[in-house]
């Protein structure tokens, strides 16, 4: 194990570990691409790596790979993919068809019920800042069986209610997905720079409070440190685990795959 790591590095590595052993994962723009690539080359070699541009079952060649894909339509995803086709197949047939096991996403904000925002900061009608937009994030959030979200633990990102729900999770509590016309989803996971969160629902949002629950802490982080950043009274699991620090192998891959600093050095997370 290595102690010489930055918190965003462990966030990225831990998020990749949260992907299921053989799940079909739709990997979204931003840090999920780096996290999924590291996972593919270390702890999760058998998950099925797909992106919405129409790259399916991408298997990077460990002997040849020089960097993680830059974005989800990097042409290096064409090499080693089991299939390449298009967005209608990826988001339509697989995504809307309800067969994507996991949407691996990030966003600008996440809230108490796991909803995320990729569109505007502030009011939609007169935003303080417009973001690039949702891409396929909203689509995957609506119809994937589960979402794993990467989100740096900052007060501007963890909010009681996101400024704009572009990507619904549990909306405003139990039963809300069903009332909106969406299938159950979860258990969703949010991986931050200080800890990992689940949600208080055993059946994908039908019952339970559906609130975010702290389940695991990063090494040397206290619950109170996290609570000080989160603006609502945070639920904490009865038994809180501790996240394993990065292995030298994980850290080495992470740094090699992001040698340009596209993901972590330039603060794009």
């Amino acid at each position: 194990m290595s102690d010489d790591y930055a918190l965003p590095e462990l966030m990225t590595i831990e998020a990749g570990r949260r992907l299921g052993e053989t799940e079909s994962v739709m990997v979204g723009l931003g840090l999920p691409v780096l996290a999924a690539t590291v996972a593919k080359l270390t702890r999760r070699p058998h998950f099925v790596f797909n992106t919405e541009v129409g790259a399916f079952d991408w298997e990077p060649d460990p002997a040849a790979i020089t960097r993680a894909p830059i974005g989800i339509s990097d042409i290096n995803l064409n090499v080693g993919a089991g299939m390449v086709s298009d967005m209608q197949d990826a988001l339509g047939a697989w995504g809307h068809g309800g067969k994507v096991d996991c949407a691996f996403l990030t966003a600008a904000q996440v809230d108490r019920y796991g909803n995320t925002n990729t569109l505007v900061i502030g009011d939609y009608a007169s935003p303080r800042r417009r973001l690039a937009g949702t891409g396929g994030n909203a689509d995957l959030a609506c119809t994937a069986k589960c979402a794993v979200v990467i989100m740096s633990l900052e007060a501007r990102r963890f909010v009681e209610r996101v400024d704009f729900i572009s990507s619904p999770a549990y909306i405003d509590g139990p039963g809300a997905r069903g009332r909106a016309g969406l299938a159950p989803q979860g258990p969703n996971v949010v991986v931050s720079t200080m800890g990992v969160f689940g949600f208080d629902t055993a059946d994908g949002g039908r019952t339970g409070s559906c609130e975010m629950v702290l389940t695991d802490l990063f090494p040397n982080v206290e619950v109170s440190t996290i609570q000080a950043i989160i603006p609502w009274e945070l639920k904490v699991a009865d038994e809180v685990g501790v996240v394993e620090p990065p292995s030298p192998e994980e850290l080495d891959w992470l740094r090699r795959l992001d040698s340009l600093g596209w993901y972590l050095r330039e603060g794009r997370y």
Binding site: H96, A125, A138, C142, I165, S166, P168, R177, G181, L182
Partner: peptide
Amino acid sequence: KWFLGSDYLKPE
């Protein structure tokens, strides 16, 4: 099913 449950659908 997309956009259901989101703020895109608010009339305003």
